[in-house]
Computed example of a mutant assay.
Amino acid sequence: MKNLLLKTKYTLLTLSLLLIALLVTGCNKENNYETLDSGHNQEIGPEEKDEKIDINIAALKGPTGIGMVKIMEDAANKETSNNYNFLIAGEADEISTGLIKGEIDIAAIPCNLASVLYNKTEGQIKIMGINTLGVLYIVETGESINSIEDLKGKTIYSTGYGTTPQYTLNYLLSLYGLDPDKDLNIEYKTEATEVAALLENSHDAIAMLPQPFVTTVMMKNENVRIALDIDKEWNKQNNNGGVVTGVVVVNKDFLEKNPEAVDLFLREYKDSAEYVNKNIDKAAELVEKYGLFKAAVAKAAIPYCNITFIGGSKMKEKVEAYLNILYNQNPNSVGGALPGEDFYYIP
């Protein structure tokens, strides 16, 4: 009987220990599950916990907006990291006013305008990347121009008097030893359509035009040909990185409040620019869909628009060199002074 009681106590003790072990193990499993679940939530938490923010983005009609079209499409399909509201403007003043007032957070604009706005707002506009390199071309209806030196003694029609096209052409001519005031005649017209008309009505007319006007003229007149690529000719004589046409800028206050959102946008922008260059047909359709210009023109023009995305120190080097050239010709072209170091946003 005594042995039976001992055996029963032993059995009960064993069962108790087993039950305790099971309870401990169960608690540990539950805690491990919570820990893993918590870790999982931490990984995806920013997407679930933080709501998408609204970002107002602007671009000009023309090449400087082309690199954004894939982002525009992704935003329309709710596939971007944040909510992007796009403004496609026909005039730079509309974007400038929005940036100054803080109504526009991010914009694709001409490089020199970014510097002008930086000076005007005392540093409230920062540049984040280059989105368009050279878009200027020398075209002609004849066969006489095969080098910059061939322009000597000729008449060139162009637009952009008192703006970057004039300064770019003057600097390029000087690189090849030509004086724009003495060695050739440059006639500036108000509208690109005027230049196009002159090309159509002459068998030996020479002009400097930007894309996509070059493509538009060539589509209307089979006698027009591209004689010289301004950016390529520039780089033959100058190692400073060439012409910087368009850049992406951000409002400083918005950047300081939303650095992660800005960095996400930059990654999406880079992907968008790559998409445009690799999928020209589809990109051309998006160019028309979002009101930049017609798809047929875009399809032919994109390979000549030098769409890109260059950020970081390389961006800074290229922009500084280009703005220096503009400043030396006319300080007002960059807002009266060269931007300081705080002009450049390098993540």
Score class of each variant (00 low, 15 high):
M1E: 13
K2Y: 12
K7G: 07
L15M: 13
S16W: 11
L18A: 14
L19I: 15
I20W: 10
V24S: 11
T25W: 05
N28W: 12
E30F: 15
E30P: 00
L36K: 15
N41S: 12
E43F: 07
I44Y: 10
P46D: 07
E48Y: 13
E48V: 14
I55Q: 05
I57H: 02
I57S: 02
G62S: 05
G67L: 08
I71F: 04
N77D: 15
Y84T: 07
G90M: 10
E91M: 11
S96N: 13
S96V: 00
T97C: 00
D105K: 05
A107D: 08
A114M: 04
V116I: 15
V116D: 02
V116F: 09
L117N: 02
Y118Q: 08
T121F: 00
I127L: 13
M128E: 01
I130R: 01
T132A: 06
L133M: 14
L133A: 03
L136R: 07
Y137D: 08
E140I: 07
T141M: 07
T141F: 09
N146V: 10
S147W: 12
D150F: 08
K154I: 10
K154L: 06
K154G: 09
I156A: 02
G162N: 07
T164E: 11
T164G: 02
T164M: 11
Y171A: 05
G177E: 12
L178S: 03
L184C: 07
I186Y: 10
E187P: 01
E200P: 00
N201F: 15
F213W: 13
V214I: 10
T215W: 09
V217S: 05
M218R: 04
E222G: 02
L228Y: 09
D229I: 06
I230A: 02
K232N: 11
W234E: 01
N235V: 07
Q237N: 12
N239E: 13
N240A: 05
V243N: 01
V247F: 04
V247M: 05
V250I: 13
E256R: 03
E256F: 02
K257S: 12
A261C: 00
D263V: 00
L266N: 07
K270C: 06
D271I: 06
S272Q: 09
S272N: 07
V276W: 06
N277P: 11
K278G: 01
N279R: 10
I280Q: 05
L286V: 11
V287G: 03
V287N: 02
Y290F: 14
K294M: 08
A296T: 13
V297K: 04
V297L: 08
V297W: 00
Y304R: 14
C305E: 15
T308Q: 03
G311H: 05
G312Q: 09
K316M: 11
K318A: 04
Y327A: 10
N328M: 09
S333E: 14
G335H: 06
G336R: 13
A337K: 15
A337S: 14
F343S: 01
